[in-house]
Design a binder for these strands. Structure first.
Lengths: 160, 160
DNA sequence: CGCGGGTCGGTGACATGTCAACGATTGTCC
DNA sequence: GGACAATCGTTGACATGTCACCGACCCGCG
């Protein structure tokens, strides 16, 4: 086997820039949200789908799917948020294995007060730098990249 | 003040896709590196500039700047890597406040064995999906976004 | 029915990242 | 020289994320 194709200077710089920019972008959004509403990015990520769900309740499994998190991460985060009164857990009547997560009035207030500024921040820091055409191109690019990422899978999932 | 401009459907989908794809991409790269060489992404991030430095030594401050990390994060990570024998600390002769981080032979072996596959993975999962033109466009886009991100700064830094 | 594999949520141990604070040192200004 | 702010690295407390595992439960099949 021959020498692998190393990254060229431009590629290395792009990779570096991509990672650094993502990190800074997330850091800025997170910091702004925390000072603005006391919510972390993780809090917001869960409160958002809950606030749009019928009655402010979701089954834990469905909440996990809508944010793309693993179960343990979700469980830990819900525990922390429960301790702070943002959400509460309930039994799942249709499946005794499951559980439900419900937005409390405090959680509703929190997400309602945090959302407008967060959306504005995402615009300011991200979308305002993209033309409509660039948005389309970027979406296509992300689709291609995402499709090429190997899944964490049990062996049987790999053949589908 | 009127209703803020909410994200449209396409924008929301793009934002979602961007975050999900980044997360999955990083997860895949990290998992592959760990199974392949036992190094985490954080390990690799530090070993890479060290391996390119003169003599495999860098002042902690400079290492921190080259990866863009805060001092405490860097210090913790170096401590963990020191415990595993990948690097060692040394005194800084030119400035008694400072310290140096040196790549050990074990660390050198680790980065040398991890690098080829990692580079190949970055190609496979990322660069293979981008044309040269797209790389140029993306680099420009990232520059614009990065330039618009407010820095964490002491008040006096804000006016420069 | 009851066995057995899969699903679901939770837990504890640990790795990682952030924040505030400290002690030591350096450089600056008078 | 000496006060004083800034820099440097570290530490401890805590928040977050990952992993392996458990216990309860659902469902299909004999």
């Amino acid at each position: 086997m021959v020498e692998p194709r190393w990254l060229g200077e431009q590629e290395a710089a792009l990779w570096q820039a991509y990672r650094a920019t993502h990190r800074e972008l997330m850091r800025a959004l997170e910091a702004r949200m925390i000072t603005n509403s006391g919510l972390s990015g993780a809090d917001y990520a869960l409160l958002h789908p809950l606030s749009e769900a019928e009655g402010g309740v979701l089954r834990t499994r469905d909440l996990g799917r809508s944010v793309g998190w693993e179960r343990s991460r979700l469980s830990h985060q819900v525990s922390r948020m429960e301790k702070r009164g943002l959400v509460c857990r309930e039994e799942c009547t249709s499946d005794a294995r499951g559980s439900m997560v419900r937005l409390t009035p405090l959680g509703r207030t929190a997400i309602d007060s945090a959302a407008p500024d967060h959306v504005a921040a995402v615009r300011t820091y991200f979308f305002d730098h993209l033309t409509t055409e660039e948005q389309t191109q970027l979406a296509a690019l992300l689709d291609r990249v995402a499709a090429g990422i190997p899944m964490t899978c049990v062996p049987s999932d790999c053949e589908e």
